[in-house]
Amino acid sequence: MTRPSPKIGVYGFTGCAGDQLMILNCEDQLVDLFGATEIRSFVMAKSDNHEAELDVALVEGSISTEAQLKHLKDIRERSKVLIAIGTCACWGGPQAMKLGDGKFEERYKKVYGNAKITVSKAIEGQPLDAFVKVDMKIPGCPIDKQEFLKSVSKLVAGKHPYLLKSPVCLECKWKENKCLLLDGKFCAGPLTKGGCGAVCPSHNLPCVGCWGPTDDLNVSAEYDLLKEKGFVPEEIITKIRKFGGSGVMELVKNLEKKEAKK
C-alpha cells in the first residue's frame, strides 16, 4: 500500500506535557511512528521544526493565555484534522475545575496581585473546543499508549479511529473487580470515560476520573449515591469537577439547582 505519509505536528499548551511524553514513551513503536508519518513539528522531541500545512495536529493542554489562543488558531488553520490529546486539551483539566463560576478575575488577583505580567495576558483555562473545532478527543491523564497508537495507526491507514465511549466500569468488570462503590468508596468510574483498562480499581484504588467524563454520565445519581454513603456535598462536587472541566460544568450546575430546590 502506498499512501503518502501524513504530516503531523505535536503541540503542547497548558498542562504537564505528560501526553507528549507518553508519545515519546512509546519506545517500541517510536521508530514505526516516525517512519509511517512525517513529523513536521514536535518541539519537545526534536529541533528543526517546520510550521506549515499539516494533515494531523495533536494538541495537548488547555488554553490559558492569549498567545496560546493565537497559536492554537494558527494550528487549526493549517491542519486538516485537529486532535485534542489528554484531559486538559479535551475538557480543560484541573485548571478548568471552576469553569463557569464567574470568579476567574478574583482568583487571578488572589494569586498574582498586581504583579506585572510580561509574557501574555492570562485567560481562564479552557479546553481546545472552547475556541476551535476539535475533530477528535483522546483524553487521559496521561493518554494511554495503546489507545493513542491504535488511533494513529488507523489515521495513517486512512480509517476512522475508534475510542471506547463507555465508562471505566466496563473494563473494571471484565477484570472481575468488586465494585468499590458497594464498599462505600468514592469511585468515579461510572462518570469517567473508559479505555484505561480500569487500572486504578484493579489495584483497589477508586477511580478519580482523570480521563474526563464518559458519553452519558449520570452525575445526579452518582451524587445521590455518594451522599447516601456519607460523603458531604462539597466534596462530591469538587471531586466530580476535578477532571470534568467543561464536560461536567452544565451537569453540576443543574445538580446544584436541583439540590437548592430541595
Binding site: 463507555s166 465508562p167 466500569c169 466496563l170 468488570k173 471484565w174 465494585c179 468510574g189 461510572p190 452519558d216 454520565l217 449520570n218 445526579s220 445519581a221 452518582e222 445521590d224 449515591l225
Partner: peptide, 13 residues
C-alpha cells in the same frame, strides 16, 4: 432511569 448510573455492570455480570 434517574437512578441508573449507566455503568453497564449488570450486562457484564
Amino acid at each position: 432511569g434517574e437512578k441508573c448510573l449507566s455503568c453497564g455492570q449488570c450486562s457484564m455480570v
